[in-house]
């Protein structure tokens, strides 16, 4: 078991390193010149000025040297020159061209908002989706099942941003059922934190729950047809317990896998959610960074963070999987 985890951690680390190289190459070797936006931001951009900025930013060095400097910054402090000199404390992900602040600081500042949205939403959609899926599987073929499957198809066929926007317009603006949305740090005012995130949570919870209801239903229908379910009934186990203990215990395993990856995607930024509900999180930040003038250090950082999250989620799923399924645990 320990060996398994160590092997997985090492391979995950390699994946992250490779991704960082790829991201770095993609943006610094791409067709546009990172020095361009910096040059333009500081008034009239002459050819000499551009060349000077390129020189200062180290863009004339080889890619390997540039990547080396970037990678080194993750472990030790460095000084970055963009027009003037900026201190960048380790772990340094660069200096934002837009704000000239440290990317790491901005990431840490914006991350709690995204994290709050993702965790709250995931708790709702996982609970709701799994519960609905189990009930649909249990009453499969009945009107309740068809209503659930049909309803979930309907909800998931509406684009998420439309659903979110309509929810915000009607539930918050028009009818004031939900409080105005926005992000207040939890440490500052827990009540305001909760109120501002309530609608985003509900919207994420409801939309994502439909696909989880379908996954769970499928997995449960299969499980409930297994011999060991019949064995449990034949032992005299109550039917609720047969479904929720014997059935769900086995059916939840594939759901965990899907959830791990989904949740990582959610953590990497909830662009629509943040934009529509006016929450200043990682998603919005990433969105702004790719708009002109492009903020390359921010793009690099957000992509890298997403990659790390996906890799970590995969790792966690594998570890959890091995706890859920004793057959994996032993081998």
């Amino acid at each position: 078991m320990a060996g398994f985890i160590i092997r997985r951690v090492i391979s995950s680390f390699l994946v992250v390193v490779l991704t960082s190289m790829f991201v770095f190459a993609l943006f610094f070797l791409g067709p546009s010149n990172p020095a361009g936006p910096v040059c333009e931001a500081s008034g009239k951009c002459t050819a000499e000025r551009l060349a000077l900025i390129e020189e200062q930013m180290g863009l004339n060095e080889s890619v390997v040297t540039q990547y080396g400097a970037f990678a080194k910054g993750i472990f030790v402090d460095r000084t970055i020159t963009i027009g003037s000199e900026y201190e960048c404390d380790a772990p340094c992900l660069g200096i934002s061209y837009g704000t000239r602040g440290q990317v790491t600081d901005e990431l840490l500042e914006k991350y709690p908002a995204t994290l709050s949205i993702a965790i709250g939403g995931a708790m709702i959609y996982l609970t709701l989706g799994v519960l609905l899926g189990v009930l649909a599987a249990r009453w499969r073929g009945t009107a309740a099942d068809r209503l659930l499957v049909g309803g979930s198809l309907l909800v998931s066929s509406v684009p998420y941003y439309l659903f979110a926007l309509l929810a915000w317009i009607f539930l918050t603006l028009q009818w004031s059922i939900f409080p105005a949305t926005g992000y207040t740090p939890l440490t500052e005012n827990p009540g305001a934190w909760f109120a501002g995130l309530l609608l985003p949570w509900v919207v994420i919870g409801v939309t994502f729950s439909t696909q989880y209801a379908r996954f769970t239903r499928g997995s449960m229908v299969e499980t409930l047809g297994e011999d060991y379910i019949r064995t449990a009934t034949a032992k005299g186990v109550k039917s609720n317990k047969v479904v929720f203990k014997h059935g769900l215990r086995a059916a939840i395993v594939p759901i965990v896998t899907i959830f791990g990856l989904d949740f990582a995607a959610l953590l990497a930024g909830t662009v629509f959610t943040e934009r529509i509900f006016n929450i200043n999180g990682v998603g919005w930040w990433a969105l702004n960074s790719i708009q002109s003038p492009q903020d390359f250090p921010v793009i690099t950082a957000t992509v890298l963070v997403s990659a790390v999250l996906v890799v970590v989620a995969n790792l966690l799923v594998d570890v959890i999987y091995s706890f859920l399924d004793p057959r994996v645990r032993m081998s």
């Binding site: 011999d227 060991y228 064995t231 034949a234 014997h246 215990r249 004793p326």
Partner: peptide, 16 residues
């Protein structure tokens, strides 16, 4: 009480 044909599928794989 019932004894089933294939004990591998008739016993729950996730419980001891």
């Amino acid at each position: 009480a019932m004894i089933f044909q294939d004990p591998l599928t008739a016993l729950h794989p996730f419980y001891s």
